[in-house]
Design a protein around this nucleic acid. Sequence first.
DNA 1: ATTTAAATTTAGACAAAACTAAAAATAATT
DNA 2: AATTATTTTTAGTTTTGTCTAAATTTAAAT
Lengths: 217, 217
Amino acid sequence: MFSLSEENYLKAIFHLQKHSTAGVSTNALAEEMQTKASSVTDMVKKLSDKKLVVYKKYQGVYLSESGRKTALKIIRKHRLWEVFLVEKLNFSWDEVHDVAEELEHIKSEKLISELDKFLDYPKRDPHGDPIPDAQGDFQVANKTLLSDLSTGEKGTLVGVKDTSSEFLKYLDKNKIALGKTIEVMDQEKFDGSMLIQIEKNRLRVSTQVTANIYIKI
Amino acid sequence: MFSLSEENYLKAIFHLQKHSTAGVSTNALAEEMQTKASSVTDMVKKLSDKKLVVYKKYQGVYLSESGRKTALKIIRKHRLWEVFLVEKLNFSWDEVHDVAEELEHIKSEKLISELDKFLDYPKRDPHGDPIPDAQGDFQVANKTLLSDLSTGEKGTLVGVKDTSSEFLKYLDKNKIALGKTIEVMDQEKFDGSMLIQIEKNRLRVSTQVTANIYIKI
DNA sequence: ATTTAAATTTAGACAAAACTAAAAATAATT
DNA sequence: AATTATTTTTAGTTTTGTCTAAATTTAAAT
């Protein structure tokens, strides 16, 4: 159907598109894809010919409806495989990304519908991100960044923004995990760092940390 | 490490090499890879540069020790994924090949060792073929083609030579499955067809069938 | 032992997806 | 508004793996 590269571009455009209503710029896409702007222009033209994106020179690129559907299918596969790796194959949440990045391109409807069934239709991946269903629909959680909470507020940790191995290992080390309750005990004016209570533990975390943790109040 | 295409060539050479002690011919490889002889020559040169095969112009190609090890790793992955698809995702033995063909190229040592563990270290794939261990070792079963048995002999069905969907569906339809006991009741001189007793059933099968079923006496 | 046939290799070309360097368009500054 | 800076696109190459057509080598047949 689509090449590996085309699929990866669609996914990247989808992820960049969430951040704003404007079109995705060539440079942003080049950065995300770890490639050069000229390569992006070439590929975007190809995707445009295939009606997967809407593209006008110098105006950035938008996913078309079919492009969005295709991107969501890939994201669905990626996140289902992540669940599989963690739940069945003893991977930790910081190890799954690269392997899922490969597995997401396997082409078989049956494989994914059966995997979904085998995993008992999970709604979220190991990082708390929602898994689109076969139609591409998914819950948009009303989540808040921990950094946006005020002293005294509390909620449940439902996701992470940064999914880098370094960040996830930091969380593991400090026993900060999905599903736990977090309460903001104090905030330092100077650097924005927070003193948080997470179950029995109390610790101070920097803004780099609080700006990458999603809370459901 | 190696490209998709390189891996597929190594696998193809491995499979063709079993049939004889001579080198694999360019044309045979072209046929197996569904490509042209000139493309094969190009790729074989590349594999030779990488010391994965031993190649002398016009003399056919042989796997080197490292080529053989690489091929066995891919075959191990292919067969483990086949077991996974059948045992965990409700695939039938005639549906697994194409998907496993894609899954076998996923690069992760941990993925495969954990999958192996998850499946409880299977020794054979759904078609009865042996699964190499992490070192590339596997049992070479002392199996016989059903067509080589004589009237009165019996044994257990341990594998199939032809793994095409058509043949496997034929076997399903006639309740011929791995692990069942088969006894040769009679053989027709004229066309070589056999009357076989397989558990409670008795049926007549052609040489196309008997030459593709492996029996362990 | 020639000639013919078949198999194999070489040479040159192409598509996909990337690159570099230069040109063009847009945005930002003075 | 004109100039400068930034972003984006174009033009021309490169690499991988394929192809066709022609040349070469090996095998088969007379």
